[in-house]
Every structure is written in structure tokens, then in C-alpha cells.
Design a protein around this nucleic acid. Structure first.
Lengths: 346, 346
DNA sequence: TTGAAAGCGATACCAA
DNA sequence: TTGGTATCGCTTTCAA
């Protein structure tokens, strides 16, 4: 049908070698650029490679060398939350630079999905694993401990990781946000987020937040955890639900900026002034925040950098360089203008 | 350190078999549930599997069986554009349901990156490939034609695909949007998008858009293609640049809703009324559109469904079911309120 | 119902 | 600078 010479025919190294009139070992050496052959031989072999359209079978190579593959398994809860798509982008770009491939796993925030995915991906002899979150099922934990490959747990900083960890301390980040709102004079707080079957970073953040509010003499009157994705519309209707309950909330903390923007739109639509009538605080300093007229009160976390850092730790470990176990990537409060700024911060 | 029996030891099928006192063929049969063994044997083998913590080596299995793996390579231009993260989510979830794994490739919209990635991923003997876009380098095209595995080209509908294709006709979609704006009375249009080294769906869309505008007696006075990602802030500053050029534009068409929202924010910030002073049309009907006070004029495309459809075609093909070559997933104009609605559509 | 032997495509190791 | 041979973990094939 198409006049390509090798349609649907798999060419093996042996065929290349015999076409070039050398042994397959020589051909193998040339292809790996390992050295130990003459320039003439190299040319001859490469010529045949092009001619025959030879594609190496990496499966066989890994298998023969008793090595791991260049795969890195990466688990992410969901892509609908922009936070995680940024992290994934950071990881994949960096891994790609070093010749590794991402094998993706969307766990939908469940430990069960994660466990299934871990055992499958391990059977492909990956070079390493990058996992979002620190909570795994008992069997998953055992699999990970026995895997004998580098493992980076990201997002929620883990002071005693299975192997390595990159992220931030979400309790502290939540606490800082709570403390800031207290400083701004808020006492009667609400929270809108999403819930999942396993405790996660957002839960930890909320715990830190509550702690700070309570320490400051306030309280988190109403916490709403929707069974939905952490996106714009859930922020919108979550706010509606929260305010409908009639409690006299003076500010709302959201799981991320997307939800916060949804909430902002709901409030504005109802004729509420932000921050005059109600304060709004988001999380993540997501791209949308950069175009809003009022800077969103939020917490900046370098998501892309976090992903890159995770990939870098992985690669350093794979190349035998010394790597620290734990890396705190940091966060930064964005005071913004969607809460009253009595704190005098800028 | 941990009292697990098999820490860092790889258990092979042979070891399981000898522990169970059977041959490795019997053990292999049990593990694959292939039949041809007694219940007693099955129990015995499975017991040892649990005891030893055996994890199969799928690399070896694929290799031995001379089959393809359960990998499906999926190339996506970028995750920063929410359109693509939705498509990817649709693909991965569906593939996962059928026991396949996504090997991700972010091509950054370049044919060169795509080519490199294709040849790498092919060397892992994937079951199939799902590629975003229809334009590939000559070598990539040859590799794809010779790969002998199912290939789905998504996003930009391809009437003569390499193998299969799912998506929409972007020219038609762009044309429809253009025609609608003409019907609404707009004649002097602007465009803000991003550019890449290869022509892509957005380019095709723009071509259709221009065609419609010109057929209607208008013109697309200014087209801005930024070297940036198709996100909020580029929409914002792109609009600034466009309007600074002084041409008397009455409406702007954007590459997607995120950019359009950025533009909307810029216009509003400058005191322009939308759609009174200027019309704004986005693309994709992205999640943010659901919380805006004014419904964004846009084009709905079922991104998640598109991803799922691609995965379904792949799986149907892999299981030998008959599959059509081309599937049009459709689009739907959202008239919205960010353009003057003289057309009387609702 | 079970097992023994061959072989998948490459690399490691040792010899020439 | 080159080549022969064993081997990786599993499945296929054929025989018992």
C-alpha cells in the first residue's frame, strides 16, 4: 500500500547485524555508542539501521540488562484541579529532558485506585515512582517499601517519607492563612472544599487553619466538603449552600483559587461586597488570579517548580548523586484585596 | 529494618513454582487464570504468591509472548491549556478502566518533540498510540505507518487519518463562530491566540473564522499570535497589545475561554463595556465560564467525552471489534452575552 | 492436569 | 576491535 520497505515487519538487531556483516554484539555496541569498534564498522551498521528502519526493542534491552526501564510512574489525584495539572507538567517536562517517560495514574483521590495502579506499574519495572500524597493503603506501603526503587512523595511534605519527599507543610500553610485572617479581624469563618475517601493535604490545611482561628479567639463555624471536583462551579454552589445556612460568616476560606473565584462570583452576583460584606481567601495563586481586578487573597505555592524538583530528586537518585530525603518547596502568603487588610501587610 | 520477608528481593515465577512444588508452567497458568489445573494446585500456588509477595514481571511476559504491552502512548501539547488537561483526563480514566496505562508525552506543540517522543515510546512496544493533532514530521509519519498498532489522531478531525481519528472540524467550528459574529453585526474583528511552530487546530479555526468574516463583508483586521501558553494572562496582555494598535476593532475572538476571560478583565479594567463597546468570544466552554455573571460567547466542545471516545476506539480496535475510522464528536455554539445578540439566537 | 524444552531480543562476560 | 555463548523471566509448543 505504501512503498516503505519494512511495513509491519519488525526488524531485530540480529537482522541489522547480518545485513552489515557483523555480529550482533558489534551492532549492539555501535547502537549504544559504547565504543570499541572502528569508524568504518560504525558507518556500516548505522547505514543498515537507516535502510531497514530498525527500531530497538527497549523491552528486551531492559530485560536482558536486568535493569529498570526509563519509566517513571507518576500518580496524580485529578487533572480538573489545576494545581495538579501544573505539578504534572513540571514533572513530565523535567523527566523528558533526562530521557524518562511518565506513566500516568489518576487515582481520583482514592487509596484503592492508587494501590491497584501501584502494583500494575511496578510490574513494568519502572525506574522510580512519584506519588501525590503521603497516605497509602497498607498493601501499597508494603509494595513501595519492597520495590527497591526511588520513590518521591510529593505535595504534602512528609517528614518520614518512604524514601524522599518534596512539598510544603500544609498544616503550617493553613495556619498562616488562618492567622492572617484573624489579624485582619475575622472571627466567624467558613470553609468550602471537596472531600475524598482519604485524608489529604486539603484536610491538613483545614486543620491548621482551624487551629489558627481558634487560637485567635474565632471559630470556623461551617465547613463544607462537597463531593465534587475542586473547580469553579463547586465553589459557586458551595458558597450558596454555606451562606444559605444563615450563620453569620464574615469570611470564607476555599480549597483553591478556582473555588474561591466561583465563590467570589456568587457573592458579587448576590450583591455582596468583597471584602466589605464578606472576605474571600483562596489557595494556590493559580493563573486566573493574575487577571482579576482585585488581587485574590491566596497562598502562593510554586507548583511547576514543585514538579520539577520532584523529577530532579528522582533523576539525581537514579544517577547515584547524593540527595536529601526531604525538600521543603515553600509557600508565600498573598495578602490580596479580597479580605479586609487590617494587618497592615502588603 | 522492616520485617517483611522479601525486602529488595525480586521473586520470580520459578521461585514461586518451586516453593509450591509445581513446574513454572503450572504456576504461569494459574496466574493467568488460563485454566488447565486443579483447584488444589491453584490454591497452593496462590498461597505461595501471597507468602512471597510475588510481583509478575510484565516486561518479560510481553517479551516472551511477542505481544504488545498494555501501554498506550498519549501525546498532548501542553497541560497549561485546560482544554488538553480535560482531554487527557478523559483518555486516562477510560484506558484505566480497561487495564491500560497511559505513557504521557508533552510535545509543547512542536513536531520535533513529537517525533522524538514517538520513536522512544514505540520502542516500548505500546499497544497503541493516541496523538493530538494531525500534523507530524515526515519521519514520524513513516514511523506511525510502519508501527503496525492502532493509532488515534484526536482533536483536529482528520478525514484521511493514518489509522483512526476523533475530534471536530475546526475550520467549520471557526467558520460558525465567525458567521455568528457577522450576524451580530460585527465587521472589524481581532484575534488573540498563541502560536507554535506547527500549524494546529487553532490555526485551522482561525482560517475558518476569517473566511466567514470575509464572506460577510467584514475583516479580521488584527491577528495576534503570542509566544506563550493559552492561559489567562496572555489573554489579558494580548488584548492590551491588540487595542493599543489603535485599529477600531469591535470584537475579539480568542483561542480559548481562559484567554477570553483575561481579555474580558482587561477591557473591563479599562472601563470598556462588554459587549457594549467591544464584543468578546471565547472557545471551549471551559469550567470558568459556568460562574461568570455574563455567559461567555463560546463554542462548546465535549473535551472529556472526546478523550473517552478516543480511548474507546483504541480499546475496540485492540479487542478486534469493528470500528469506524473517523468520529466527529461535534460542537455547539454558545451565543452567550459577551457579544451583542442581534442574531436573535438564544 | 502437568511438565520439559525452545525461544523472544537484547546485553554481559569472556575469549580471540 | 570483534565475536561466541549464557542469560534475563516468561510464554508457547508439544509431549506425557
Amino acid at each position: 500500500m505504501h512503498d516503505v520497505p519494512n511495513k509491519n515487519k519488525k526488524i531485530s538487531l540480529t537482522q541489522v547485524a547480518s545485513a552489515a556483516g557483523v555480529s550482533k554484539m558489534t551492532a549492539s555496541r555501535v547502537l549504544r555508542g559504547e565504543g570499541g569498534y572502528s569508524e568504518k564498522t560504525r558507518k556500516l551498521v548505522m547505514e543498515k539501521v537507516d535502510q531497514l528502519g530498525y527500531l530497538p526493542n527497549r523491552l528486551a534491552a531492559v530485560f536482558a540488562g536486568d535493569k529498570t526501564s526509563t519509566f517513571v510512574g507518576v500518580s496524580i489525584p485529578e487533572l480538573g484541579n489545576e494545581v495538579f495539572s501544573q505539578v504534572l507538567e513540571g514533572i513530565d517536562r523535567k523527566l523528558g529532558t533526562f530521557g524518562h517517560q511518565t506513566v500516568l495514574g489518576l487515582t481520583q483521590h482514592t487509596a484503592e485506585e492508587e494501590e491497584t495502579w501501584i502494583s500494575t506499574v511496578l510490574s513494568w519495572q519502572p525506574a522510580g515512582l512519584i506519588l501525590t500524597g503521603r497516605l497509602h493503603s497498607p498493601r501499597a506501603t508494603e509494595l513501595l517499601r519492597n520495590a527497591g526503587i526511588p520513590i518521591v512523595e510529593i505535595w504534602d511534605l512528609n517528614s518520614s517519607p518512604i524514601d524522599m519527599s518534596v512539598g510544603i507543610n500544609h498544616f503550617d500553610a493553613g495556619f498562616d492563612m488562618g492567622r492572617y485572617l484573624v489579624q485582619c479581624g475575622y472571627r466567624n469563618l467558613g470553609y468550602v472544599g471537596t472531600s475524598h475517601d482519604i485524608a489529604n493535604a486539603a484536610t491538613t490545611r483545614l486543620a491548621g487553619f482551624c487551629k489558627a482561628i481558634e487560637s485567635g479567639g474565632g471559630q470556623v463555624t461551617k465547613q463544607l466538603c462537597l463531593h465534587d471536583s475542586a473547580s469553579y462551579y463547586p465553589g459557586f454552589y458551595g458558597t450558596e449552600q454555606l451562606l444559605a445556612s444563615g450563620t453569620d460568616i464574615d469570611a470564607i476560606f476555599y480549597q483553591n483559587d478556582a473555588m474561591a473565584f466561583g465563590g467570589l462570583q456568587f457573592c458579587t452576583g448576590k450583591g455582596l461586597c468583597v471584602p466589605g460584606d464578606i472576605g474571600i481567601a483562596g489557595w494556590g495563586d493559580l493563573p486566573i488570579a493574575s487577571v482579576l481586578a482585585k488581587r485574590m487573597t491566596s497562598m502562593h505555592v510554586p507548583h511547576l517548580k514543585l514538579g520539577q524538583a520532584a523529577a530532579e530528586m528522582m533523576i539525581a537518585r537514579l544517577s547515584g548523586e547524593p540527595v536529601g530525603d526531604v525538600r521543603d518547596i515553600g509557600f508565600k502568603l498573598i495578602p490580596g484585596s479580597t479580605v479586609r487588610n487590617l494587618a497592615g501587610l502588603s
